[in-house]
């Protein structure tokens, strides 16, 4: 399985330290572009994030987040345009409500809600994107690996 190999192949520099795997679901117009800006501005950040680009945070089905945890993510970032700045007028408002509810569901499912970061990063906030990434990685690192589903997966034939 790809996840397992990826974890084993971690660079020697980080050997011994837990390197969390973070999935990021971001909107195309603000955060993805903001992350592009981080690149063009050479904002250095930790390499633990794998990104999925979507048109809008409104598109982000909470099932994606659960699926990411199921596939070995230790943490998830969800980020889009600032409230009021949505490219599609109001997609991020719907997303915001959805995620407020989803946090409750996470608690119910026994996933520590600190494993998920919801943030707003605009196309001009390359530096902020770097901070969001690094802060999330450090926070999840402190929480340790999310093993619950991995064990389940191994047990499931």
């Amino acid at each position: 399985m790809s996840t397992a190999t990826a974890i084993e192949n971690k660079s020697p520099a980080s050997a011994g330290r837990f390197e969390p795997r973070i999935a990021a679901f971001v909107c195309n117009w603000c955060t993805y572009t903001g992350a592009d800006l981080a690149g063009t501005s050479r904002v250095q950040m930790m390499p633990n994030v794998r990104m999925v680009r979507l048109p809008c945070t409104g598109r982000i089905d909470t099932a994606f987040i659960i699926k990411a945890f199921e596939r070995g993510a230790d943490g998830v970032i969800v980020s889009g345009c600032h409230p009021g700045d949505c490219h599609y007028s109001e997609g991020n408002y719907h997303a915001r409500r959805r995620f407020a509810m989803f946090k409750e569901l996470m608690n119910f499912m026994g996933i520590d809600e600190r494993r998920v970061t919801f943030s707003w990063v605009s196309a001009s906030e390359g530096r902020k994107w770097g901070d969001v990434v690094d802060e999330t990685i450090e926070r999840v690192r402190a929480l340790g690996p999310f093993d619950d589903y991995k064990t389940l997966l191994e047990e499931t034939p």
């Binding site: 990826a6 192949n9 980080s14 592009d36 690149g39 050479r42 904002v43 950040m45 390499p47 794998r50």
Partner: peptide
């Protein structure tokens, strides 16, 4: 590039990330 080679220093980690991103 923007999301990988330009923002990381470790060649191993960046290569790892590039493989993952391409695979996805």
């Amino acid at each position: 590039r923007e999301h990988c080679s330009w923002i990381h220093e470790s060649r191993t980690a960046a290569t790892e990330k590039a493989i993952d991103a391409t695979r996805m």
